[in-house]
Every structure is written in structure tokens, then in C-alpha cells.
Amino acid sequence: MASAPENEKNASAPEKKTLTLKSMINNEEFVVDEHVALQSVTIKNMVDSDCAGDVIPVPTISGEILALVIEYCKNHANPSASEDDLKKADAGIVAKDIYTLIDLVLAANFLDIKGLLEVTSQKIADSIKDLPHQDVREIFGVENDYTPEEEAAVRAEHDWAFEGFP
């Protein structure tokens, strides 16, 4: 009963516009409704300036990460989602290990999706907050290039910042 008029509607209505996003890391393709993909300002600019072909190549973002980005965009393109629903969904998306989060923050930055950039950055900040400095260096691939004297000077400069740290 309910499905019959639905089908008719689909037949008469113009086909929903979709875009294909392709990860250039592993060639994975994702077909996405246009209004979902347009939450990315980068993609929106490409579409608006007619630079988008049938397939939009996304460099430096793996399929795994692109899938998370698209999940985020779908959630936030749903007009009936309540604020609480979105909060829960966001928390699910960022419940990942730190390396996935760093990939995700880079993706959000490249695709220019402000909300995703924010929740991911917050999560990264929360996860590194209580880590020893050496662990944070490892996560971000940082080599300590201070001389012992320089390091001591930095510590002395902001002593309160280092209270409670080894």
C-alpha cells in the first residue's frame, strides 16, 4: 500500500543528483547525494565553478577515512536529526585511535568541513592532554631538537605549564 505512491513519485520526480568521490589513495569510489557532499566547502566550490566532473578525485584521503567523512556529512544533511542525535553520532565517528583521528582532521581540513574539523580536533586534544611529552612527540612524528640548555630554558619560562608533568 504505502510503497505504490512512493514508486510513482520516484518515476515522475527528476532523478536525485549524485556525485562520485574517489579516493586517490586506494581508488575506492563512493556515490553520494549531492546535498550530502556539498557540506564540504571544497567540493561545493568545485561544483559551483563547474570544475567537478562525474568523478571527483580526492587526493591524500584513504577510502576508510572518506567513508567516515561521508557518514558525518550524511548525518548532518538529515534535517530531522535532533541536536542530541547528532552529538551521539559525532561521538561515534570520532571514537577512533589517534592516527585515524589525525587522518580525519587532515581530511576535514582539506575538504573544508568546519563541524568535522571541530569535533575531531576536540577529540585529539582530549586524547593527548594527559600524555607524557615523549608520547605526544611520537604521535605527531616530532623529534626533540632542543639542546638540554634550551629545553631547560623553555621549562623555566613557563614553569606553571609544566607543574605535574615529568
Binding site: 592532554k129 611529552h133 616530532v142 631538537d145 621549562r155 619560562e157 606553571w160 609544566f162
Partner: peptide, 13 residues
């Protein structure tokens, strides 16, 4: 406090 603490990571930071 923690943000300033990252100044110890390396000269870039």
C-alpha cells in the same frame, strides 16, 4: 596550561 606545555616538544612547537 597544556597548550603552552607543548612548547617543550621541539623548536617548531
Amino acid at each position: 596550561k597544556y597548550a603552552v606545555g607543548t612548547s617543550i616538544l621541539s623548536t617548531r612547537w
